[in-house]
Design a protein around this nucleic acid. Sequence first.
DNA 1: GCCAACGTTGGC
DNA 2: GCCAACGTTGGC
Length: 150
Amino acid sequence: MAYWLMKSEPSDYSIQDLKQDKRAHWDGVRNYQARNHMRTMLVGEEAFFYHSNCKVPGIVGIMKVVKTTYVDHTAFDPKDIHFDPKSNADKPRWEMVDLAYVSAYSKIISLAQLRETPALEEMIILRKGNRLSITPVTTKEWKTICQLGG
DNA sequence: GCCAACGTTGGC
DNA sequence: GCCAACGTTGGC
């Protein structure tokens, strides 16, 4: 069983949205590396929900995989913001998983706080220039971050 | 808003 | 296959 970290801009979709919806399609991923990570996800695996591109970026909660990858049909929709003319029903290029809400931290574990934690110095999202929206998290990192969350 | 870093595209 | 140009991400 692997652990994950998945980014979303809260102005687009936040942990509060997921809490309300209970379950969500993680659509709109348009990066091959991120897609390939999703392909290896198994039902029951847990992921941190990360708020990116906002005032205080950081980890805000936990969710779990409830459905493995299937075709992301939003890529076919010209009105969708993530429309990709190179993906079609005959030859779909993008996929998504379904995730369920698990918990939300009462206080965000900020990016600054993650950077200050020595046990996390190898974390992928903390590496210079990293922009990948879906990354694996090691068991050690997972436990360290859970402790930070209290 | 700025800009470094990265991924993708397409001409050659 | 190379690589310049372009678009996007995301912290600050």
